[in-house]
Design a protein around this nucleic acid. Structure first.
Lengths: 341, 341
DNA sequence: TTGAAAGCGCTAACAT
DNA sequence: ATGTTAGCGCTTTCAA
């Protein structure tokens, strides 16, 4: 079999074969009332026979609106974003939208050209799973042309849907305090959105203050691209020299890397070091990882985000930006315990 | 700020503002030669000023071809597919295509309606990361309308790009044989495509035969939806009762589950049991998983798949289906060792 | 070097 | 209940 001519039947082909006008075919396709049962079935038969599929491009061109949702995601290789992407695609499809993904890998250029491309496709709305690096240019490309929803990352020019980062951090930190830890560090992974990181730090600080403990913030150094294992180990070793007995990491990924370092350094988790993460990615639940963490309600986040975007697109929702915050939950697993005496 | 009117400037707006005809604007956009420098800059200024973006729908309607690539993926939550999806999106974007994902979750209905939708969007081509459940209907929807490429899964009505499953299985099995194992089981995870599973079994069988060893095939029972942990443990316990000392799993996911079961049952890996996986997902490289496995060249698979699809779309490649097989590599880690005496 | 005009496949009035 | 018609925003001959 050779390459296909990719010939699609048009509404005119159907009309001709069924011996009706193209409007009648259009009426059948769109299921409008006022088509005689006879005609309807006859047209439908021709449609099935010809394998006719309406051209969405033509439809959307005349209707002046599309059912394409743009999704901007930093790294689909990151399990958290991959799972979010999956949920969003499902939600979008459930509401009759098609998701167009732009995986930006944090590259400014990819981000901007992706957004421009989405606008050229006249995406009905765009959904950010990570805040664009160049906020102003991103905004100037999208704003005024399509509604935007920021999921899990704050954006000041669109609706935002995120987990209660502050409360989650409180939960995590309180858990460590109750276990008897005094030296509890906050471990910031730069991959976490600034706004989320900020809120998580806030929650951490509040609990530490309340307990009369001194906060310590560590910034995980990431090399652009590959991570230097030795460099990470040195950092962790340094942290442990400060006699820290517990760490709250701003995300699971960072927490898992910390576990790895601890393993290499011979530091026992949870005996010598307790670790709490944030996200509850699937990996965190593996018996060998077994990470105590704060669960983000991924499916709900995705559902509400698409719901809001849909409402904006349909003009059902209008006016000021929505700011939805969903509850989180602490998942107790094996990476935390009371400090050794 | 209230909701945007989503008003996009058209080519006519630009033409009017620049005092030229729309054809001239079109010529500027498309960068065709034969436009005076004066006119070009003037038009370009208006374009920038108005933030004009050509409507891709209109363009594609008249050109009778799109730059949309449909990607069908079974489960983006699965790290292997998530990583593949990411690479494919990057490759597609690099060649001027936009990726439209359909996450089917193995549901027949989602799959078929997703494909129909892709055809309505007049996707230039479709890329399968997992074989559709209803092959015949999938074929009838796509075939003759858009070229299809099957990545990591065999499809008889399109080009296929996959890793050398057979050779990979040989590598894995030989590794275990050389370590001195005699009772080596093959562990089939049903999530693996039939064709890939078949080839991996073939490689396994060949090596076992050559070594004069008796092959044993186990089929991992997966409940639809949630897995029953106890059930899995029972299966693994049963396998171990057969005095198997090594297992070659048809994918990393299954291998990791096996590790989990072994942990729970108190079976030491690699001392009491050696385990080899297939794929080399990121998780397999975590120190706490440390799985010996066969690496699939994900980026290359994605690159070649998109390259072939691009060639088909442009008519550069014509005729019989391509069948590309890429080399794999055994990644030695800590889950394998010689059997205990 | 530019412009006029004919569609691409469809929807949505408006006629009949 | 069905047909006619005027676009949607663009590309692409063909003239000027």
């Amino acid at each position: 079999m050779t390459a296909s001519p990719a010939r699609h039947a048009t509404i005119l082909d159907v009309a001709a074969a069924a011996g009706v006008s193209k409007s009648t075919v259009s009426n059948v396709i769109r299921g409008v009332v006022g088509v005689s049962p006879d005609t309807r079935t006859r047209v439908q038969e021709v449609i099935d026979q010809l394998g006719y599929r309406p051209n969405v491009l033509a439809r959307q061109l005349v209707q002046q609106r599309t059912t394409t949702l743009g999704v901007v995601v930093g790294d689909m290789g990151n399990p958290f974003y991959a799972e979010m992407a999956k949920h969003i695609e499902r939600e979008a499809a459930g509401r009759g939208y098609r998701a167009m993904f732009c995986n930006t890998q944090g590259e400014n250029e990819a981000e901007l050209s992706g957004l421009e491309s989405l606008m050229e496709y006249r995406a009905a709305g765009v959904l950010f799973l990570s805040q664009p690096a160049d906020r102003e240019r991103a905004r100037s490309i999208v704003s005024g042309r399509a509604p935007a929803v920021f999921v899990t990352c704050a954006g000041d020019w669109g609706d935002t849907v995120s987990a209660d980062d502050d409360a989650g951090a409180e939960l995590a930190t309180e858990h460590l305090v109750r276990l008897g830890h005094r030296r509890i560090a906050y471990f910031a992974d730069p991959i976490v959105e600034d706004s989320a990181d900020h809120d998580r730090q806030t929650g951490y600080h509040r609990v530490m203050d309340r307990a009369g403990l001194a906060p310590t913030i560590f910034h995980w150094q990431r090399q652009p691209g590959e991570l230097l294992r030795q460099k990470r180990d040195e950092q962790v070793a340094e942290i442990l020299r400060t006699r820290v007995t517990a760490v709250f990491s701003s995300n699971d990924y960072g927490a898992i890397e910390l576990l790895e370092c601890a393993d290499r350094l011979g530091v026992k988790v949870p005996d010598d070091l307790s670790v709490v993460g944030f996200d509850d990615v699937v990996m965190a639940g593996l018996a060998r990882i077994n990470l105590t963490t704060v669960r983000q309600p991924q499916a709900e986040l995705a559902g509400i985000a698409v719901e809001i975007l849909d409402a904006r697109v349909n003009g059902v929702l209008d006016g000021a930006h929505q700011r939805r915050t969903l509850d989180v939950e602490l998942v107790l697993r094996g990476s935390t315990a009371s400090p050794q005496p």
